[in-house]
């Protein structure tokens, strides 16, 4: 963006876009019951809640250590399992190395559909299938990680220098040898960075999985919320904030060295 964008050609187009945006906004605001008067009405209840939720209950902190560890276990399993499955998914979805057109189309659509569902949906599904607990959370984050990593990684694989894989092919290498020796070694650093990135997302995601019964710190959060123990809720949310920021800092510094 070194040069300023050209001014809009027609006034009509600009006005049209603004009209569409305004209509969407008004329609949405009406649909969700956006009202300032309601905000003012609820302000009293809201301020009471805020008073109750401060100061945070520091005595509650020791009881959070176990659930936090569980949360990190879930995030780690989800990331590792997802990262392994994402390799074949990403390779088959990368046009230059994909073995044939049909595999490519099927895998691409599979990836796109996988990406549409949020992590908490997977958590609800797995909690129903395998029962409440951390295993459901780990499975949910595995699927979610496949979605995140395979999308990013397949774009990296598509951008590789194809001379190397072609050379492996020309020497009589099989498709697997071409991918393993010619294609993937070029993109391992990016892969490692994407895995770290997905781990960051998973740490954040694993904090809320417990809301639907999939283990971790969210389970405690859900019970305290249901009992209106808001000074404990504040304590939990503050510690989530600290843990997430810490892990992000570490992971981001590793990623910077990889990239």
């Amino acid at each position: 963006m070194s040069r300023p964008a050209p001014p809009p050609r027609q006034l009509g187009l600009t006005l049209g876009v603004i009209a569409v945006l305004a209509t969407m906004t008004l329609w949405s605001a009406h649909g969700i019951g956006f009202s300032v008067s309601e905000l003012v009405c609820n302000a009293a209840g809201g301020s009471r809640l805020l008073r109750e939720s401060w100061p945070p209950d520091f005595a509650f902190l020791p009881r959070l250590i176990g659930p936090f560890l569980e949360t990190l276990h879930i995030a780690l399993i989800g990331t590792v399992v997802g990262a392994i499955i994402a390799i074949p998914v990403a390779v088959l979805a990368a046009r230059p190395v994909s073995p044939n057109w049909l595999t490519w189309i099927i895998d691409r659509n599979f990836m796109n559909i996988l990406r549409t569902l949020p992590d908490l949906f997977w958590a609800m599904l797995f909690a129903t299938a395998v029962g409440f607990g951390p295993l459901a959370g780990a499975l949910a984050l595995s699927v979610f990680s496949v979605a995140v990593i395979s999308k990013l990684f397949s774009e990296s694989v598509e951008a590789i220098d194809m001379h190397l894989p072609e050379a492996v092919r020309a020497c009589g290498g099989s498709w697997l040898q071409m991918v393993g020796l010619g294609a993937l070694p070029q993109v391992w650093p990016q892969y490692a960075a994407y895995v770290m990135y997905s781990f960051e997302l998973n740490v954040r995601g694993s904090m809320v999985l417990g809301l639907v019964g999939a283990g971790g710190i969210g389970m405690i959060l859900e019970t305290q919320r249901a009992n209106f123990e808001y000074e404990r809720v504040t304590m939990i949310i503050l510690s989530v904030l600290v843990v997430v920021l810490l892990i992000e800092q570490v992971s981001a510094s590793v990623r910077r060295r990889l990239a």
């Binding site: 649909g31 969700i32 019951g33 956006f34 009202s35 309601e38 905000l39 609820n42 209840g45 809201g46 809640l49 805020l50 939720s53 908490l120 954040r204 995601g205 904090m207 809320v208 809301l211 959060l221 919320r225 809720v233 949310i237 989530v240 904030l241 997430v244 920021l245 992000e248």
Partner: peptide
């Protein structure tokens, strides 16, 4: 903004639901 991003949106909703009432407004 880093602090805001560190807290998943659903946790914000936990605070906002009692403040503005159940429903999509809190979510928005």
């Amino acid at each position: 903004s880093a602090a805001i991003r560190a807290v998943p949106e659903i946790l914000w909703a936990i605070y906002l639901v009692p403040i503005v009432g159940l429903g999509p407004f809190a979510g928005a």
